[in-house]
Write a protein that binds this DNA or RNA. Structure first.
Lengths: 143, 143
DNA sequence: TTGCGTGCAAAGGTTTTGCATGGCA
DNA sequence: TGCCATGCAAAACCTTTGCACGCAA
């Protein structure tokens, strides 16, 4: 059963950070560094523990952007239900930009996948890889 | 410039493995284990080195399925150009199954993303996360 | 006082890298 | 002979886990 959740300083700190950065991406390191600058301490383990729990609850989304860099998290609001404002993520393989995209066409894909293939897409975790408009313009010769 | 590429045993071994398993997924460990059973030796570093190069050339696709398990690779054929037979990958978050899906609707998304947002989707790297039909049937209560 | 929450450090896993050796041309 | 390719082991990286201590209730 749900244990009594203590109200601790770290939890408050993390929640305040989440609200500040709502909708933006951050890593665990970002969180720790942010508070280190303010002379507050919050250990990585603690951040991981909270974030993992919140991912399970759906209020935070976790994205594996690249296998070798830290995972990206994103706050989706306390009462965020997944259907609320689903958006997708486009990751540019050239410049590394992560684009938020709210697009009906993509939502249609979600429906299509479900109806035709019985597959229930999870937009909270899916990342589209490719090359963004800006990078395509630049001939694309550079790495 | 392109250096003279030597013809080595390891390269042959890897290529033969790729052709055998064409279209299937494998990890670096799979490759090494496969040859270890046949008393052939091919080190992980070598496999990573070749695979990374081939990913760059487009003949092998690399998927980050889960941040904590090994990366999945897939051979796409020597002369595989990306337009040839693009298919997408659906990863079930419940049972872990990786589904290959060749679907015109999804190809339409690719076009849509390109036309409306200038984003050139890379199907070789994109993985759709969600829940597969089988797992949805099973009430979905289990982890 | 009870026992959850925390931080530190160690462990765990995959992938990369350095370096000496081996093998292709 | 020259130099690319290889394998081993160590390093690097992110994330998880064990454990003792601190703090909320």
């Amino acid at each position: 059963m749900a244990r009594t959740a203590y109200r601790t300083k770290q939890k408050e700190l993390l929640l305040s950070y989440l609200k500040e950065t709502g909708g933006q991406h951050f890593t665990v390191e970002d969180v720790c560094a942010h508070f280190a600058k303010e002379d507050e301490t919050i250990g990585v383990a603690t951040v991981y523990r909270y974030l993992d729990k919140m991912v399970g609850e759906g209020s935070v989304a976790k994205y594996v952007i690249d296998e070798h860099s830290a995972a990206c998290f994103e706050y989706r609001g306390e009462s965020a239900c997944m259907e609320a404002a689903p958006h997708f993520h486009l990751k540019c393989e050239k410049c590394g930009t992560l684009i938020h995209l709210q697009c009906d066409e993509l939502s249609a894909v979600q429906t299509k996948l479900f109806e035709d293939h019985g597959f229930e897409l999870n937009p909270m975790r899916t990342v589209f890889y490719g090359v963004c408009a800006d990078c395509r313009k630049k001939t694309g010769t550079e790495e």
